[in-house]
Structure formats: C-alpha cells, structure tokens
C-alpha cells in the first residue's frame, strides 16, 4: 500500500511538472501615497519597480510571489519647525522607501485571449524606511508592516507568451512598531511586460 502511495505521488508530481505554466511580470510602478505617507511626501513617486513570478494552478487561477520598490521623495520649502521652546529652520528632504514582499493569488476573468482582465490579492509585508534630512542631520524611521494588496489589471497579449500589462494596486501596510506609528498606504499604477 505504501509503495502504491509513493508511486502515486511521483505520478502526480510528474503530471503537474509536465503541465505547469508560469509567467514573470516586470513593471514600472508609479506610486501615490495616501494617509500618513501622503501627508509626508504629498506628491507622486515616479521611481518604482515591481517584479513577480506566478504559476498557473488552473486556466484562471495563478499563485506566486511579488516584490517591489517605490521611492517617494519630496523637497520641502525652507520652513521653521517649533517644538516647545525650541525652533529649527531649514529645508527638509524627505524620503520614503517602500518595499512590498508578497505572496499573491491571481484570478483571470477569461481564459487566455488577446485581452485578459485579472484581479489579485497579495499578502505579506512592506518594509518602510523613512529618512528625513535637515541640514547635516538625518532622522531614520522604519517598520515592517503587515500588508494586504488587492489589484485589478489587464493583460494585452502580443503572442501566447508575451503581453503588456496595466494594473492598479492598493498597498495597505498596517501599523507596526513604534517608529512609524501609523499605517503606510499607497496606490500604484503599474505598466509592465509579461513573459
């Protein structure tokens, strides 16, 4: 009985291996901070990249991993900041580096066609590192936020293996730790290529 079970497992593994379909997507990511992150930087980030690797479990469902990097940046005007009996003036240079690392599940609303709409949900973490520079001084705050990242998008196939992709993701990085005491959330518009 045990022998048949082992044979069956090998047979199943071989079947999956023979049928497995996977794809990689690389995209340029434009970020739009909201909430605490939006108040901190106040303008979109045009410095971003994302990559993901997915395996198709059925014709409509894929699972995979994804990673990204969005750099938010703002140069503040010269200003005075007062706290109790102390005031400090200067130009602040604000940086927020956001690195989402996610497991994701994707549902394709149609089977592979010229145009294939999709929706996905990612779950994982975002590493956030916030640097605030003033003169020669710098304050660094960071956090590993638990993250949920829903996404909607569409693939436009050039041929059966390659497609352009457009998607909108919402990263909800839940509050974590003491340094950044609010959640870190942003939308991203991703323009990519799938192969």
């Amino acid at each position: 009985m045990k022998k048949y079970l082992i044979y069956s497992l090998f047979l199943l593994a071989g079947t999956i291996q023979g049928q497995v379909q996977s794809y990689t997507n690389i995209s340029y990511s434009i970020g739009f901070g909201i909430g605490d992150l939006g108040e901190y930087v106040g303008q979109p980030s045009f410095r971003g990249v994302a990559a993901e690797y997915n395996v198709m479990m059925t014709n409509n469902v894929g699972i995979g991993i994804s990673a990204g990097w969005n750099v938010f940046y703002k140069e503040e005007d010269f200003a005075t900041y007062t706290y109790e009996n102390k005031s400090i003036s200067g130009k602040q240079f604000r940086y927020s580096n956001n690195v989402p690392l996610l497991f994701k599940a994707t549902y394709f609303f149609t089977e592979k066609d010229k145009v294939q709409p999709l929706a996905s949900l990612g779950i994982g973490t975002i590493y956030t590192k916030r640097d605030t520079e003033l003169g020669l001084y710098k304050v660094t705050q960071d956090a590993w936020n638990f993250c949920l990242a829903p996404e909607i998008g569409v693939l436009y196939y050039l041929n059966p293996q390659n497609a352009f992709s457009v998607s909108i993701k919402y990263f909800n990085g839940f509050q974590s730790g003491n340094e950044l005491d609010e959640s870190q959330n942003y939308f991203s518009l991703n323009l990519g290529f799938t192969f």
């Binding site: 410095r47 971003g48 990249v49 990097w69 750099v71 940046y73 140069e75 009996n85 102390k86 005031s87 400090i88 003036s89 200067g90 130009k91 240079f93 940086y95 520079e133 003033l134 003169g135 020669l136 001084y137």
Partner: peptide, 23 residues
C-alpha cells in the same frame, strides 16, 4: 535604472543651512 534615478537630495550648499534656537 531605478538606483540611477534615486533622488539626490540637497544640490546647493545653502540647502544644508539650519538655524536652531532655544530659550
């Protein structure tokens, strides 16, 4: 490419001027 376009921060020396007061 992303690393190459990472924001460079202060460009001029007076961008680093800071005035601190306390009483």
């Amino acid at each position: 490419m992303l690393a190459g376009c990472y924001p460079k921060g202060p460009e001029y020396v007076d961008d680093l001027d800071v005035t601190f007061t306390s009483y």
